[in-house]
Design a protein around this nucleic acid. Structure first.
Length: 196
DNA sequence: ATGATGATTAACT
DNA sequence: GTTAATCATCATG
């Protein structure tokens, strides 16, 4: 049910794609929240947009640790982003979780976000961190066991089957270098297929 | 020690 | 479409 460490020790682009449709679960003291991963970005080797591009520092150290751990950092002085470390240890790659579909614990998400509209709860990397109750204290922690993990199933909620949806790849968001790489992956919403 | 800079968001016009 | 908010990190001196 919970995705194992081996899942993450694969090429980062592949992991970023395979994470689409999976469930991010946080069993926090305030309550349980679950969201379906609908958007990811891969940060790879020889990629100038990667925090690990210029080698290991104190901040990016989790990226050089084992796959399947979290890498959480402060951005713009006020927001946090959540990544999962990928690839063989020492390579320095990770997947940024960019958006979720809220599934469980929606009232708690609304409280944490101070927003009611479902579309404003987890539709961005820093929004979903806030909605899920993730904090810096979870940095460099195993995401293959509770309280924070990715699963195929949680209670009545199931991950989307791999062939039950389509996704598109495109340039990553918010970066000024590495924009030539199409490492952003996004589930095509139902009823909005580009071929329809 | 200092200064520029973000893997963003929300609130504007 | 534009912009303010806000600060740890990192490169430079």
């Amino acid at each position: 049910m919970i995705l194992p460490p081996d899942f993450y020790a694969l090429p980062t682009e592949l992991v970023a794609q395979e994470l689409l449709g999976k469930l991010l679960v946080h069993e926090s003291p305030e309550g349980i929240t679950v969201g379906r991963i609908i958007e990811t970005e891969a940060y790879v080797s020889n990629d100038p947009a990667n925090h690990a591009y210029r080698g290991q520092t104190q901040r990016n150290a989790p990226m050089f640790g084992p796959a399947g751990r979290s890498y959480i950092y402060l951005i713009y002085g006020m927001h946090y982003c959540f990544n999962i470390v990928t690839a063989p240890q020492g390579v320095g790659e990770a997947v940024l979780i960019r958006a979720l579909e809220p599934l469980e614990g929606i009232p708690l998400m609304q409280l944490r976000r101070n927003k009611v509209n479902l579309s404003e709860l987890t539709s961005g990397p820093a929004k979903l961190v806030q909605a899920m109750g993730v904090t810096l204290s979870q940095n460099n922690k195993d995401v293959t066991s509770p309280p924070l993990y990715v699963a195929d199933q949680y209670r009545s909620h199931c991950a989307l089957e791999k062939n039950s949806f389509s996704f598109i790849a495109g340039p990553r968001v918010g970066i000024r270098v590495g924009t030539d790489l199409n490492l952003r992956y996004l589930i095509v919403p139902e009823g909005r297929s580009p071929l329809a």
